[in-house]
Structures are given as C-alpha cells and as structure tokens.
Simulated scan of single mutants.
Amino acid sequence: MGRRSKQIGDIGAGARAAADQLADFARLDPDVPIRTRAASLAPIAHAVRDIGSSLLPGFDSGRKRILAYFRLHPGQAINGEELFVVAGIDDWARRLRELRVEKGWPIYSGVTFGHLREHDREQLLEIESQIGFETTALGPEQYVLVEDAPDENAAKHWKLLKSLRGSELSVQDRILELLRNNVGQAISGEQLRYVAGDASEWARRVRELRTEQGWPVLTKMQGRPEIPVGSYVLAEDKQSPSHDRKISDSVRIAVLQRDGFKCRHCGWSRGNLDPDDPRKLLELHHVREHAQGGVNTVENLVTLCNVDHDAVHAKTLSLPAGWP
C-alpha cells in the first residue's frame, strides 16, 4: 500500500518546500540515471498530496474530505481532479462510490445525468431546476451533490443493493425488487443505477414500471414533494389493473389537476399523509367501468384515494351519480 497523505499545518511552507524540491529536480543533469530521477520525484509527489489533503484540515480520511468538499459546494459541478487533490488518496473514485451508493448521498455523475436525459427527461428537469443549471455539458468525471442530505436508510439498503446487482434478474426486475423491498422509502437514481449494473437504460426501466407495468413509482414532481429530488418511491406494493396502465401521463395530470390533487370522495391529499393512515396515494377510477366500455379519458376518470378506490371495486362504496 502506498504512503498515506499527511495533513500539514502550514500549507504555504509546504508548498514552498515542494517548489524547492521541484527546482532541484529541474537542475539534475540529464545524464543522471532515470531511476535516480524518478526516485527524486517521489517526495515531491507526496508533498503535493499532503498539501491537497491539508486544504480540509480536521478530516482524517479521504472519504470524509470528499464529502466535506461536496458539502461546501452543494449544487455545483465538481471535477474528479479536484476530488483527487482534496482526497489525498489514489482510490478516491471508490470512496466517492461508497458515499453515493453505500451512504446514500445524492451525488450524481455526468454519466447518470446522461442516462436521465435519454430515458427520463422529467426527472432530469426536476433535478436541473433544483441545482439551477443545465447538465448537458457535464463530463463523465464531473459530479453534483444535488441535495445536502443523505438517505437515512442507505445502510439497510446496501446489502440488498449488492445482492441484486450480482443477480441474474433482468435490469427491470432488479429495480422492481429493490423498490418492493422498500415500499414508501425514497431510492436515489444512483442506487438504482448501481443495482442495474450501471446499464444506461435503468431510467427507462423505472419509467416503464410506472407507465407500462402499472406500479405506483412516483417522484417529487409526481406528487411526492417530501422525497429528495432525483429519487423514486414505490408508494404501494400494488400493481394496477392492466386497463389502468394505458392512461397517458397527459390525461392523468389533467384529471389530478381538475380534482385539485385530492380524493373526490373523502378529500384526502398527500398533505394529509400519516403513517397510521391506510390512505397512501391517489388513483384514477373509471366512472364507467372499463369492462363496460369505459375509456381512458378525462371525462370518464375521477381521482380517489387508494382506500376509497378499493372500496368502490369491493362494492362497499357507491359514488354519486353525475361524476366527474
């Protein structure tokens, strides 16, 4: 294992000493054996690394320094080269991954932004609105801490993340398994990307779970304002009937807006969310049942909470005539 960086108290003096060493190297005769010249560069390299790690005094590990650097610059694009400098370690990239995946810090890379741009632009726009700039120009080794708060359940997720990543399940099935094991809990895009084995289509598979498979996978923009930006949550471990999966996003949004984002029967909305209340999400109900020829139009759909929706289908609740 290589020499660990050591923090120094006087960065200026350290920089001057390194500069003197570099000047001595420049004065070496070109005929000096290459091994001698290489050996003379080693203490200079160590000195520069010590200076870099000393920019964040009081943090005794590369991972802690990387996190501290991000927290000083939330919502800003950070280059990998900067992280290499302040971390003072060779394996800074592995420590960064630990922060993103194991510790749950929402640090998104240029690669992840590219995946979202290709497969889930709605989520991308929400993140860009949060951080205040477009991410189009970000390179693979540029990173952004999109929100200065970690996933409190990250440690619990980690064992499952590792087992799913190494499984033979499809990308979509791995993602669904993770979400179903964490119903009601936010999962970051970076965690989903990790489970997918870094496959670029992970964002498309998440979207398909909601729009084609009927799983209530929601984001901050889709009525879950309390979850971190860039995260996804499975609101309920319940797949909607096949005919409900064909409702387009535009129709769904129009119905929710018309009904004020609340249940037309009991008035429940996401603002009333309570752990002890079985009402967890809003669903769209066909006034004229699909089996009777009802279609997926704004005029034939009404917003109900999940409890009232189940009661209607169990025929223990009748809706007023004339709706919607």
Results as ranks from 00 to 15, higher is better:
residue 165 R to E: 15
residue 13 A to Y: 02
residue 225 P to E: 02
residue 146 V to D: 01
residue 189 G to C: 02
residue 263 C to L: 03
residue 247 I to N: 02
residue 58 G to H: 11
residue 204 R to T: 02
residue 74 P to E: 04
residue 210 R to K: 14
residue 214 G to M: 09
residue 13 A to Q: 05
residue 27 R to G: 04
residue 216 P to D: 04
residue 147 E to H: 12
residue 269 S to M: 06
residue 34 I to M: 08
residue 277 D to A: 02
residue 95 R to Y: 14
residue 296 N to V: 04
residue 276 D to M: 09
residue 200 S to P: 11
residue 239 Q to P: 01
residue 26 A to M: 12
residue 150 P to W: 05
residue 110 G to D: 11
residue 245 R to A: 14
residue 182 N to Q: 14
residue 272 N to G: 02
residue 263 C to N: 04
residue 264 R to W: 00
residue 60 D to P: 05
residue 252 R to M: 03
residue 114 G to N: 10
residue 37 R to N: 01
residue 242 S to V: 14
residue 302 V to I: 15
residue 233 V to Q: 08
residue 64 K to V: 01
residue 263 C to Q: 03
residue 165 R to I: 04
residue 161 L to M: 11
residue 139 G to L: 14
residue 268 W to R: 05
residue 68 A to K: 10
residue 149 A to N: 12
residue 104 G to D: 09
residue 80 G to P: 00
residue 38 A to S: 07
residue 106 P to L: 01
residue 257 Q to D: 13
residue 227 I to K: 00
residue 181 N to I: 04
residue 171 V to A: 07
residue 192 L to G: 11
residue 8 I to G: 09
residue 289 E to S: 13
residue 68 A to Y: 00
residue 118 E to V: 13
residue 83 L to S: 04
residue 301 L to E: 08
residue 140 P to K: 12
residue 129 S to F: 00
residue 298 V to E: 11
residue 323 W to C: 06
residue 249 D to Q: 10
residue 48 V to Y: 11
residue 122 E to R: 12
residue 267 G to H: 04
residue 300 N to T: 03
residue 28 L to S: 10
residue 201 E to T: 13
residue 42 A to I: 15
residue 118 E to A: 15
residue 321 A to C: 08
residue 246 K to V: 14
residue 323 W to D: 02
residue 228 P to T: 00
residue 176 L to V: 00
residue 103 K to H: 13
residue 285 H to M: 08
residue 19 A to D: 07
residue 171 V to N: 06
residue 84 F to D: 12
residue 151 D to S: 12
residue 184 G to E: 05
residue 283 E to R: 13
residue 33 P to Q: 03
residue 78 I to T: 15
residue 194 Y to K: 06
residue 284 L to K: 11
residue 221 M to D: 13
residue 118 E to K: 14
residue 210 R to P: 02
residue 308 D to G: 04
residue 311 A to D: 14
residue 82 E to N: 10
residue 100 R to I: 05
residue 53 S to E: 11
residue 302 V to P: 01
residue 279 R to L: 03
residue 53 S to K: 11
residue 273 L to I: 13
residue 101 V to M: 04
residue 90 D to W: 06
residue 280 K to V: 15
residue 140 P to N: 15
residue 180 R to C: 13
residue 286 H to Q: 11
residue 145 L to K: 13
residue 50 D to M: 07
residue 255 V to M: 03
residue 90 D to I: 07
residue 244 D to V: 09
residue 62 G to L: 03
residue 280 K to R: 15
residue 123 Q to M: 15
residue 27 R to A: 13
residue 214 G to P: 09
residue 81 E to L: 13
residue 157 H to A: 10
residue 318 S to H: 04
residue 47 A to E: 11
residue 195 V to R: 02
residue 34 I to D: 09
residue 113 F to S: 05
residue 59 F to T: 14
residue 208 E to C: 03
residue 205 R to T: 05
residue 4 R to I: 01
residue 175 I to Q: 01
residue 128 E to K: 08
residue 57 P to D: 10
residue 92 W to H: 02
residue 127 I to S: 09
residue 119 H to L: 03
residue 300 N to M: 05
residue 36 T to S: 08
residue 117 R to Y: 06
residue 269 S to V: 04
residue 47 A to W: 05
residue 150 P to A: 11
residue 292 Q to H: 10
residue 135 T to P: 01
residue 266 C to R: 08
residue 7 Q to R: 14
residue 75 G to T: 07
residue 208 E to N: 06
residue 91 D to E: 02
